[in-house]
Design a protein around this nucleic acid. Structure first.
Lengths: 224, 224
DNA sequence: AGCCAGCGTAAAGAACACGTAAAAACAAGC
DNA sequence: GCTTGTTTTTACGTGTTCTTTACGCTGGCT
């Protein structure tokens, strides 16, 4: 199921999109302004964002910037302006697509499909395996030597973030903001606690980890 | 350098795009029809495709399908038709973006940037190699003879700055302000300490560096 | 030749980051 | 309202990194 965050200040349009997109199989998260949009994007798993540029509380470009600060989620911009300049600004701010009003529903649906196809193509990797354990991303399950291992929600979030970026160094800040939220960006101690728990559950020798590595002062890295 | 495959049957437009895109730093591979376009895409490394739908030899949708059969390269469609139906068809066939004529050059450039940004984020792995070591910018990892080398945060910052500007002379002030902050612009001794550490880790003979060079009185330079 | 500013190297204490265990606070289900 | 599982605190020992100090070397200049 694809979840769409729809941001529009006009209640009728918001409602119309909600109904129509839902009818076509999408889960819709509505947001009437930029603040709630950014909040919703942080608390829920959003697959694609549909954003009207004309918002009451903040500039649409700020919303794009606020999202692009931490996520690669596709953003489709809606706007009444046909001006070339507006398009350029929105796309350069980080938007993926630009649709001018009035637009047909089928066009929006096609652009949604294009956006999710793109992002889906890069992230669809159901299973990640190591010598010691296997992570099933799709089913949110972890096996060690074939036996299922229980994970708490927080443990899973941390593990998933690392495993989805094999080999890449992930900074503490990035983990904290993605798992706990931006307000927790400095609670680096949480990470030590949870990394220890993950290692206790997944590493042969938790004191000498092979797959969940620490790079002192820099962050953590998952080595396949 | 980004390479763009431009497919258009009108020689003037093809030529105009070629000149303008080249002026903005793109390498342009021109193709007047679908057959040459598909052939060119197979033989050369293409980063993004700009495709006019009205081609003499085959339907534009066939070209999209022909490309999508084996590559994920971003495709931007140009078309004179404003009809919603055409857009839907092109996007569903696998195009990434749809621009209706007439369009401004700055809009096309913005869409090109958006397309390459997307694909560049997922596929391109910025790696810098020398005879002695390899620096993986994306994963923040350094290898020497295939073996990973640990870097402290400060060591990495200095190395990254130099490696991202291969061959260029970087002044001491520039390194100090970028890594330690403007207040440290005169702590040139820090640099000597860290350059020594980097050379000890990465150079065959740290006393006679080959890649991390000192330009006395001026700054430092990374030679690939 | 001798001076000296800039550079390279080594080593040590201070400051900071990390790992671990266990207790306290919190939430959800029955 | 109790139980159970999870998250957040607290405490402390260890390890790593940064900064500072000390000293030797080089190459240009007088």
């Amino acid at each position: 199921m694809t979840t769409v965050l729809v941001v529009d200040d006009e209640p009728q349009i918001l409602r119309a999109l909600q109904i129509n997109l839902h009818a076509h199989g999408y889960t819709v998260v509505p947001a009437p302004n930029g603040t709630t949009a950014l909040a919703a994007a942080q608390t829920q798993a959003i697959d694609v964002v549909v954003l009207d540029l004309g918002l009451p509380d903040m500039d649409g470009l700020e919303v794009i910037a606020g999202l692009r600060g931490w996520t690669e989620v596709p953003i489709i911009v809606l706007s009444a302006r046909h001006g070339s300049h507006d398009k350029v600004e929105a796309l350069d701010a980080g938007a993926d697509d630009y649709v001018t009003k009035p637009f047909g529903l089928d066009e929006l649906l096609a652009r949604l499909r294009a956006a999710t196809r793109r992002s889906g193509a890069q992230t669809e990797e159901p299973r990640v395996e190591t010598a010691e354990f296997t992570v099933d991303l799709a089913n949110k399950q972890v096996f060690r030597h074939g036996e299922p291992v229980r994970m708490t929600p927080t443990e899973w979030s941390v593990l998933e973030l690392l495993v989805r970026n094999p080999g890449r160094l992930i900074s503490q800040q990035q983990i904290l903001t993605e798992v706990w939220g931006p307000a927790y960006a400095k609670e680096t101690h949480y990470l030590r606690v949870y990394m220890a728990q993950l290692r206790r559950k997944l590493e042969r020798d938790p004191a000498a980890p092979v797959h969940l590595l620490t790079e002192a002062g820099m962050g953590y890295r998952f080595a396949p």
